[in-house]
Protein backbone atom coordinates (compact mmCIF):
# COMPACT_ATOMS: atom_id res chain seq x y z
CA UNK A 1 0.00 0.00 0.00
CA UNK A 2 1.32 3.40 -0.94
CA UNK A 3 2.04 5.67 2.01
CA UNK A 4 0.02 8.84 2.25
CA UNK A 5 2.58 11.55 2.90
CA UNK A 6 0.18 14.43 2.59
CA UNK A 7 0.12 16.70 5.63
CA UNK A 8 -3.45 17.15 6.80
CA UNK A 9 -2.82 19.88 9.30
CA UNK A 10 0.10 21.50 10.98
CA UNK A 11 0.24 22.67 14.56
CA UNK A 12 2.92 25.00 15.80
CA UNK A 13 3.08 25.10 19.57
CA UNK A 14 4.72 28.01 21.33
CA UNK A 15 6.31 27.19 24.69
CA UNK A 16 7.21 30.17 26.83
CA UNK A 17 10.38 30.01 28.89
CA UNK A 18 8.37 30.02 32.12
CA UNK A 19 6.79 26.70 31.16
CA UNK A 20 10.09 24.80 31.30
CA UNK A 21 12.03 27.00 33.69
CA UNK A 22 11.28 24.99 36.83
CA UNK A 23 11.55 21.55 35.23
CA UNK A 24 14.53 19.25 35.71
CA UNK A 25 16.58 18.38 32.60
CA UNK A 26 14.93 14.98 32.12
CA UNK A 27 11.44 16.42 32.50
CA UNK A 28 12.22 19.26 30.11
CA UNK A 29 13.41 16.85 27.42
CA UNK A 30 10.44 14.54 27.97
CA UNK A 31 8.01 17.44 27.65
CA UNK A 32 9.54 18.56 24.36
CA UNK A 33 9.73 15.05 22.92
CA UNK A 34 6.14 14.29 23.90
CA UNK A 35 4.97 17.33 21.91
CA UNK A 36 7.13 16.41 18.91
CA UNK A 37 5.83 12.84 19.03
CA UNK A 38 2.31 14.19 18.72
CA UNK A 39 3.35 15.63 15.36
CA UNK A 40 3.66 19.28 16.37
CA UNK A 41 6.36 21.80 15.67
CA UNK A 42 7.68 23.55 18.77
CA UNK A 43 8.80 27.12 19.03
CA UNK A 44 10.48 27.35 22.40
CA UNK A 45 11.42 30.61 24.01
CA UNK A 46 14.97 29.98 25.19
CA UNK A 47 17.29 27.09 24.58
CA UNK A 48 18.47 23.91 26.21
CA UNK A 49 21.92 23.58 27.74
CA UNK A 50 24.48 21.81 25.53
CA UNK A 51 24.36 18.75 27.78
CA UNK A 52 20.57 18.71 27.48
CA UNK A 53 20.80 18.96 23.70
CA UNK A 54 23.10 15.91 23.73
CA UNK A 55 20.64 14.03 25.95
CA UNK A 56 17.80 15.10 23.68
CA UNK A 57 19.65 13.46 20.77
CA UNK A 58 20.30 10.32 22.84
CA UNK A 59 16.65 10.04 23.89
CA UNK A 60 15.51 10.70 20.32
CA UNK A 61 17.75 7.93 19.01
CA UNK A 62 16.41 5.54 21.65
CA UNK A 63 12.91 6.15 20.25
CA UNK A 64 13.71 5.79 16.55
CA UNK A 65 12.72 2.30 15.47
CA UNK A 66 10.64 1.75 18.59
CA UNK A 67 7.88 4.26 17.85
CA UNK A 68 6.04 3.75 14.58
CA UNK A 69 7.00 6.21 11.83
CA UNK A 70 9.24 8.23 14.15
CA UNK A 71 12.48 9.05 12.33
CA UNK A 72 13.92 11.61 14.69
CA UNK A 73 13.82 15.37 14.99
CA UNK A 74 14.92 18.50 13.24
CA UNK A 75 16.35 21.11 15.57
CA UNK A 76 17.71 24.64 15.33
CA UNK A 77 18.49 27.36 17.81
CA UNK A 78 18.48 30.95 16.67
CA UNK A 79 19.17 34.17 18.45
CA UNK A 80 17.59 37.16 16.76
CA UNK A 81 19.77 39.60 18.69
CA UNK A 82 22.99 37.84 17.89
CA UNK A 83 22.91 37.43 14.15
CA UNK A 84 26.35 38.90 13.81
CA UNK A 85 27.95 36.78 16.50
CA UNK A 86 29.82 33.63 15.61
CA UNK A 87 28.33 30.25 16.34
CA UNK A 88 30.91 29.71 19.08
CA UNK A 89 30.07 33.00 20.73
CA UNK A 90 26.50 31.80 20.76
CA UNK A 91 27.56 28.49 22.29
CA UNK A 92 29.48 30.31 25.02
CA UNK A 93 26.69 32.80 25.47
CA UNK A 94 24.31 29.89 25.91
CA UNK A 95 26.54 28.19 28.45
CA UNK A 96 27.02 31.36 30.44
CA UNK A 97 23.34 31.59 31.05
CA UNK A 98 22.83 28.11 32.47
CA UNK A 99 19.40 27.22 31.11
CA UNK A 100 19.13 28.85 27.88
CA UNK A 101 18.99 32.48 27.21
CA UNK A 102 15.47 33.73 26.93
CA UNK A 103 16.39 35.78 23.89
CA UNK A 104 17.12 32.57 21.94
CA UNK A 105 14.46 30.64 20.11
CA UNK A 106 14.54 26.88 19.64
CA UNK A 107 12.67 25.39 16.73
CA UNK A 108 12.06 21.67 16.86
CA UNK A 109 9.86 19.30 14.93
CA UNK A 110 9.46 15.67 13.93
CA UNK A 111 11.73 14.73 11.01
CA UNK A 112 8.74 13.11 9.27
CA UNK A 113 7.19 16.58 8.92
CA UNK A 114 10.16 18.94 8.99
CA UNK A 115 12.64 17.87 6.34
CA UNK A 116 15.27 20.45 7.14
CA UNK A 117 15.79 23.65 9.06
CA UNK A 118 18.27 25.60 6.97
CA UNK A 119 20.07 28.30 8.77
CA UNK A 120 22.79 30.76 8.11
CA UNK A 121 23.47 33.82 10.21
CA UNK A 122 20.94 35.93 8.33
CA UNK A 123 17.91 33.76 7.76
CA UNK A 124 16.14 30.59 8.76
CA UNK A 125 14.14 28.35 6.43
CA UNK A 126 11.92 25.49 7.52
CA UNK A 127 11.59 22.97 4.70
CA UNK A 128 8.64 20.64 5.04
CA UNK A 129 8.15 17.11 3.77
CA UNK A 130 5.47 16.76 1.11
Amino acid sequence: MKKNKKIKGLTIQFIPYTEIEMLKSGERIKKLLDIVLSGKIIILQGRLKSEEEARLIEDTMAMVGHIKDFKGIELAVINPNQEKLSMMSQVKHGLARALGAQDSITIMGPASIVREIKRDPKKIEILMNK
Binding site: K49, S50, E51, E53, A54, I57, L75, A76, V77, M87, M88, Q90, V91, K92, G94, L95, I117, K118, R119, D120, P121
Partner: peptide
Protein backbone atom coordinates in the same frame (compact mmCIF):
# COMPACT_ATOMS: atom_id res chain seq x y z
CA UNK B 1 28.31 21.56 3.39
CA UNK B 2 26.74 24.36 5.40
CA UNK B 3 28.55 24.40 8.78
CA UNK B 4 25.64 26.13 10.56
CA UNK B 5 23.93 22.97 11.74
CA UNK B 6 22.64 22.34 15.24
CA UNK B 7 24.50 19.03 15.43
CA UNK B 8 27.82 20.82 14.95
CA UNK B 9 26.90 23.41 17.59
CA UNK B 10 25.76 20.70 20.01
CA UNK B 11 28.97 18.69 19.60
CA UNK B 12 31.22 21.71 20.11
CA UNK B 13 29.03 23.06 22.93
CA UNK B 14 29.42 19.77 24.78
CA UNK B 15 33.19 19.80 24.30
CA UNK B 16 33.36 23.37 25.63
CA UNK B 17 31.24 22.35 28.64
Amino acid sequence: KNPYSQVNITIIGNLVA
